[in-house]
Amino acid sequence: MSIKEADRVLPVTTRESDSTRERRSVLRPSRIRLYEPLVIGTLSVVLALTVWQLVANARIWSVLFLPGPWDVAQAFVQLFQSDDIWLDIATSGEELAIGYGMAIVIGLLIGLLMGWYTRFQYALDPFVNFFYSTPRIVFIPIFILWLGIELQPKIAVIFLGAVFPIIINTMAGVRNTEAALLRVARSFGASDALTFRRVVLPGSVPFILTGFRLGIGHALTGLVVAEYIAAKHGVGQIIAIASQTFQTPKAFAGVVLIACTGMLLTTVLHRIENRFQSWRPQIK
């Protein structure tokens, strides 16, 4: 290459690598880019609600069949003005808290034991497989027969729903401990207890939290279906009664309430998961 050519080529490349566009994308995303997920997400929700409202306004179907978002919003407000709503929420909340709480404690314990002790896993695997591959809501009629229509059958089905994803993920977390780390621990003469506490358990945390998060979905399914079938109070019961009595907007409002609960709990767990991942380098 002649000097002349080099002169011609060089400034161009320098200018390109110096261009503000490139620098921005590499070093620091612009403000718009930072909020892009939020902005696009919000816009798409607004668009969906608008289309829904327009379709509902056209009244091709009656409000009993397809209420618009505005009808649902009004029903939602009305719902919270009624006297029973707090009892319903409290009932469902109690069922969820007890059932899911028990699932966390027992699922974690069994999952850790199954992961750590192979023979314990061999003993329990058939049961875990049996229950996990069966939709747990099929047990509701049996639970109602055994436990009545109060809180207990709901707690039982919520527990059964949530406990297995927690067991399975916790066990996977323990089993997935890197062999190299276990070898290091053994080489330095670490006791089993110390290896478990300092190596296996912290390494399993991401798996365990994933189990918790998956458990929430199963728990809510159990809660609502159990309340549909037979209950005195509860958000699931609101939805069931509202749709049977053609209060469709109210049924929709109940659905929104359940969905919000699920999203809230899942988001909280996502936040906790991220907190435990602070050691991972941030790759965007």
Binding site: A185, F188, L194, T195, R198, W279
Partner: peptide, 23 residues
């Protein structure tokens, strides 16, 4: 070790003390 075998959730300091901690 050939592979460093460091605990990814521990800092450098936390990893360096791991040997004596295990012992």
């Amino acid at each position: 070790f050939q592979q460093p075998g460091l605990l990814p959730w521990r800092t450098v300091l936390g990893n360096v003390v791991f040997g004596v901690e295990a012992q």
